[in-house]
Design a protein around this nucleic acid. Sequence first.
RNA 1: GGAGAGGUGGCUGAGUGGUCGAAAGCGGCGGUCUUGAAAACCGUUGAGGGUUUGUAGCCCUCCCAGGGUUCGAAUCCCUGCCUCUCCGCCA
Length: 424
Amino acid sequence: MLDPRLFRSDLEYVQQQLARRGFDFDADTYQTLESQRKEIQVKTQELQNQRNTRSKAIGQAKAKGEDIRPLLDEVQNLGEQLKAAETELAEIQEKINDLMTGVPNFLANDVPEGSNEQDNVEIYSWGDKPKFSFLVKDHVDLGAQLQGMDFELGAKIASARFVVLKGPLARLQRAIIQFMLDTHIVEHGYIETYVPFLANADSLYGTGQLPKFEQDLFKVENDPGFYLIPTAEVPVTNIVRDVIVDNSDMPLKFVCHTPCFRSEAGAYGKDVKGMIRQHQFEKVELVQIVKPEDSVKAHEDLSGHAENILQKLKLPYRKVLLCSGDTGFSSNKTYDLEVWLPSQNTYREISSCSNFKDFQARRLQARWRNPETGKPELVHTLNGSGLAAGRTLIAIMENYQNEDGSITVPDVLVPYMGGMSCVS
RNA sequence: GGAGAGGUGGCUGAGUGGUCGAAAGCGGCGGUCUUGAAAACCGUUGAGGGUUUGUAGCCCUCCCAGGGUUCGAAUCCCUGCCUCUCCGCCA
């Protein structure tokens, strides 16, 4: 959520900023609601004040043994007036809140203009694309040949967009996850966390998935309802919900491996084949909680940590700065890392690293105490995949494939495969 | 699943239907003392919001959450959530 005070003090600036996203903020509706709010809130607080003063007077009169009858008559209909005002205020505030929670974050100044992913800007590419002297297979064919990747079985057990991995391929995915976690913990200084895979509505609201994107989530119809986490970002960032983080603990850097669950509503016909787009996939997520002045630097660091994984795996990739039209709702600035997939002859997203500034922190009420002011102030939150493990698995399969359909294991993963250097 | 106890400020912990946003201790911050530190002593110390040019003043809200009773609720009633203890079950 954006700062409501900014809407009151400089609405024109707010509109300009939001227009960069093509978001047309309804200023008229807002101003009508806001002027109503002001009037009703002042009225309500005045009535509350009256109630407090008079009740106090009654208490004092009673203590002195005076007759409180006239005082009681005086406050007779105050209660009803107050209740009506409070109800009206709550209604108007809910309307304003609904309006505000639908407003996306501002974009950083250096986010390029553009309407969709076509307009994203490549910052650089890394690594040499492999050259093959034979016809390349995609990960689906390779997986079938290795008898380690079965989509029909996934469909039988659950539905389309699920997979069953078996044998060395299942182990390879686990090796990837272990390798990523160890690298982030040992080399990049992250704290490993283990978290719930179901989250409540408050948590999803805090990171911005609710109320706007409920259709993307799997919901557990319990009482109270839970949601399957679409990313570890949700439970991990919510660690600091309603917390004033100690100055000396900043920055907080968490790494977490979880399965992720996405309904993929609206993705019909998209990436139907293979493991690119699944209802359930494994991901290692990086989350940082930092002081506001450090977030731009932290964003570069965090995406660098994800890149380091790709580089150690020697997977060719490119780094892309998302344009205004492709940057997510809560994000101020996002880098995507896209890995080379030989079978598709293109780069595909394998990590998305975002700086949310104080947008999530405001919803979360995640704060730190600024020693200069002595006051609690909002932190900045960031996260990024480091990396999506399922997509890393298929990138390795395709880039490291041999003519006979076997897969060479990247050097850094061999220890995690019990010394196995080739999957066949 | 059964039985019981409880949720109060950064922490521990008192509290009564009325001057309680809340005793006391600890911790934090400032000061006195000291070459410096410790100890001791003195002072200070919650969060959010409204109004406003205002980090001034005035006002409102918050004692787990949501309802209710009342002129008045941290205090009484109801519901929910969470924590702890014992029993049962279980990876």
